[in-house]
Amino acid sequence: MERAEWTGTDDDTPLVGIVGATENLDSAAIDRTVSDHDATIVAGSLEETLEQSPSVLVCVGQSALGAVARADASVPVLPVDAGDGVHSVPAAQLPAVVDAVLAGAGLERHQSTLRVETDSETLVGDARGPHRAFFDVALVTEEPARISEYSVTSRGKRLAQFRADGVVVATPQGSHGYASAAGGPLLSNGLDAVAVVPIAPFVTQTRQWIVPHDGLELAIERDEGPVTLQVDDRSLGTVAAGSSVSITTADPLSMLVPDGEWAELESGSAD
């Protein structure tokens, strides 16, 4: 991690952007804190807020954090109540954390994201990608009790071919979500790796894998029903049998971690 360049300087007036589910925030306390540091709050939609070039972006909730990652924002992000697997700040403590950050107690940690593309002819135009994923990527058979066949290749080496309801690839921060519910391992945020987990495999001995987060390919070898490509919380459409999904690394998301006493704040697992 490195110290955030904008913290603790007098060169510019800091702009604090706020996006996401803000209804549970103590807005009055945050306003007072920001005012005490001669800073300014900018808010609105994600697009409107980013257009103001904020110095730091307070991002409330998991969905908002995923949207920020997809937007390829270059601003340091301070996550709030972002769920397990993300080093985030509880909403109740946000005013104090903002105070510490604006006083210069801020470190930047670069969290990996994934670049996702598919060659499926059933998706057209931008739907094929590239897309950015912060939490996970999944291929899922749409209809219950319809088992399809998938393969996993890592850096040119075929790892496995199996029948299952689907397969999910999770980043360390995403390993606490869909992948965990499918029985996958929890990954440390310090790993440059992803977890690959079959969803309801037909053969119970099917393995799970922890592999590098680039050079990964999922393929639909055979389908017994429509298979949907999901990136984070978005469904991108049906992917045809014989198609593949390529997963590589994308530009990381800059996450702001308050240091000092605030570095111990966590809403999820330790790094």
Rank of each mutant, 00 (worst) to 15 (best):
G166K: 02
Q111S: 11
Q161A: 12
R132I: 15
P130V: 08
T204Q: 08
T204L: 13
D119P: 07
F135Q: 06
V116Y: 02
A127V: 12
G215T: 09
D165R: 09
Q111C: 07
A160K: 07
T122N: 10
I147H: 09
Q161R: 13
L229H: 08
Q230G: 07
P201I: 03
V124H: 09
G174Y: 01
L114Q: 02
D233C: 13
L123R: 12
A100V: 05
I210A: 06
L191R: 11
H131Q: 09
V116T: 03
S112D: 05
L102A: 11
L139F: 10
R109N: 13
T228Y: 06
R155G: 06
L218V: 10
L186E: 00
T113S: 03
Q205V: 14
D119C: 13
L186D: 00
S151A: 14
I210E: 08
L216S: 07
G190N: 14
P95G: 11
G106S: 11
E143K: 15
V227G: 04
E143W: 11
F162P: 07
A127Q: 12
K157V: 14
F202I: 10
G104P: 14
V203A: 13
V211H: 01
S180W: 05
H131F: 07
F202C: 06
L94A: 10
V124E: 11
A100Q: 12
V203C: 04
R109D: 15
V211T: 08
D232F: 03
D233W: 11
G177C: 06
V168N: 00
R132V: 15
L229P: 09
T113I: 08
T153Y: 03
G190I: 08
V124N: 06
A160H: 12
L107D: 14
T141I: 13
A100N: 13
G129L: 04
T171W: 00
A219G: 07
D232G: 12
A100P: 11
N189F: 02
P212S: 04
L186R: 01
L114I: 04
S151L: 08
A103P: 10
D192S: 10
P172G: 04
F135W: 03
V137C: 03
F202Q: 07
V196W: 00
Q230P: 05
I220M: 01
G225T: 10
V167M: 02
L102M: 12
D223W: 00
D99T: 12
L216I: 11
V197L: 02
V169A: 00
P212K: 07
S175E: 01
A127W: 05
L159F: 10
D126C: 04
Q205F: 04
S120L: 04
A179D: 00
A138M: 14
A164E: 06
V194G: 00
L216W: 01
R115M: 05
L218R: 02
I220H: 00
F162H: 05
P144C: 14
P212W: 04
V194H: 02
L229F: 03
R146G: 11
I199T: 05
E224D: 07
R109K: 13
T206A: 09
R163K: 15
D223Y: 01
E142M: 15
D126H: 12
L94V: 08
L114K: 03
S148E: 12
V137G: 01
A160T: 13
G129N: 06
E221Q: 08
L186F: 02
Y150E: 06
A100G: 15
G106A: 14
F162Q: 06
S154R: 11
